[in-house]
């Protein structure tokens, strides 16, 4: 199935070189979890503070149980804030 991985701020460096605008389309196995997706790109889980799947918060602690479905967009940030 196809998913989109978006890694922002300092996590951008874990994206493959072909990624543009901090995102890349990937083909992954049906049972892939958020954790699988991130570890397969060597993203250290302790740096993943904000994970949005299709824009909806997905608790980092639950990444192993968060299985993906076709077309999902996974966006991840290190600790950030704004105002």
């Amino acid at each position: 199935m196809k998913v989109k991985l978006k890694l922002y701020a300092t996590l951008g460096k874990y994206l493959p070189p072909t990624a543009k605008r901090n995102e890349i389309d990937l083909t992954v196995d049906e049972t892939t979890s958020v954790l699988d997706l991130l570890t397969s790109h060597n993203v250290p889980m302790e740096t993943c503070h904000l994970i949005l799947v299709n824009g909806v918060f997905s608790p980092p602690a639950n990444a192993a149980n968060a299985t993906l479905k076709n077309g999902d967009i996974v966006a991840v940030w290190p600790p950030v804030a704004g105002g």
Binding site: A75, W77, P78, V80, A81
Partner: peptide
């Protein structure tokens, strides 16, 4: 992690993609 690293490095502008997403 936010005030020690996030804000100094990225500024508030890091929110652009967050809020859009």
């Amino acid at each position: 992690a936010v005030t020690g690293e996030g804000l100094p490095t990225y500024g508030t502008q890091v929110l652009m993609n967050v809020i859009n997403e």
